[in-house]
């Protein structure tokens, strides 16, 4: 897996909003390979969403470069999608934006994401969990090689989150798409990840979920409070997914640029 050409490869990525003196992101190196699930965690304001938007090419870079594999198909679920109440929109119509898709295709993706038969419902009448799954279905319509999900479980309850991450793993194994996720619900999301990047303006640590949760930088950031829950997480993790992260090596490196 690690030998394959990266889908996205960023080096020395630095983003500074116009007028700001301090960059939101500094000297970030990042790569994601086919079929890999990578999660970016970090406190609010740590530049998680900015990293995603920079990788997608939505924000100008102050320094560094982003190389996307030529012709890379990306399925994107942005953070907090709000659809104006004044805009009438059925699920079916929403799936045909901006590229029109067949009814069969729309129905198939809704079924895959666990919300079959929702076509004629108004978007505004969906629950938070249903809407997230519709957004995921829409992102899958162009056969993405990479799925990018920014805080996909915001507003979901604990079972909703667990169900959603399970779905992500299923989608990965069915389609072979790589997944880049941003989250701050640490424990649940880490369970579903191959690799975790801990971000706070720069990369504090990265590696397998186990390696990162043991890293001093991670513990400093999220505090000793998370210890008890981490134990819980590790227990579940070993129980459910023995294969994840055991042989991948504890290659967490520390970046400190200041």
């Amino acid at each position: 897996m690690t030998d394959a050409t990266p889908l996205i490869h960023a080096t020395d990525l630095t983003v500074r909003p116009s007028g700001a003196e301090v960059p939101v992101l500094a000297h970030v190196d990042f790569a994601i390979r086919p079929a890999e699930i990578v999660t970016v965690v970090g406190p609010n304001g740590s530049g998680k969403s900015t990293l995603v938007r920079a990788l997608l090419g939505h924000v100008p870079l102050a320094a560094g470069r982003v190389e996307r594999k030529p012709g890379l198909r990306i399925g994107y679920v942005p953070q907090r999608v709000h659809i104006e109440q004044a805009l009438p929109m059925t699920v079916r119509r929403f799936l045909s934006l901006p590229v029109r898709v067949s009814d069969e295709r729309a129905a198939a993706e809704l079924a895959r994401t666990g919300v079959p038969g929702l076509e004629s419902r108004q978007i505004s009448a969906l629950s938070g969990g249903q809407f997230q799954r519709v957004l995921l279905a829409r992102a899958l319509l162009n056969d993405p090689q990479l799925l990018v999900l920014d805080e996909p479980t915001q507003g979901l309850d604990q079972p909703g989150m667990v169900g959603f991450y399970k779905l992500i793993e299923e989608v990965r194994s069915q389609t072979g798409a790589a997944v880049l996720m941003v989250s701050h619900d640490l424990l649940v999301v880490m369970r579903a990840s191959d690799r975790v990047i801990c971000l706070n303006g720069h990369i504090c640590c990265e590696g397998t979920p186990q390696a990162v949760s043991a890293a001093p930088a991670y513990r400093a950031m999220f505090g000793a409070d998370s210890q008890g829950m981490l134990a819980l997480y590790e227990h579940h993790h070993d129980h459910d997914h023995d294969h994840v992260g055991t042989g991948a090596g504890h290659d967490h490196h520390h970046h400190h640029h200041h």
């Binding site: 997608l56 939505h58 990306i74 994107y76 942005p78 953070q79 999608v81 709000h82 659809i83 104006e84 805009l87 929109m89 929403f94 934006l97 901006p98 590229v99 029109r100 990018v148």
Partner: peptide, 16 residues
Amino acid sequence: QRLIAATVNEELAMAS
């Protein structure tokens, strides 16, 4: 199609 997509959500539209 582009106008509707950009009206629904600019982030989604940009990604397309």
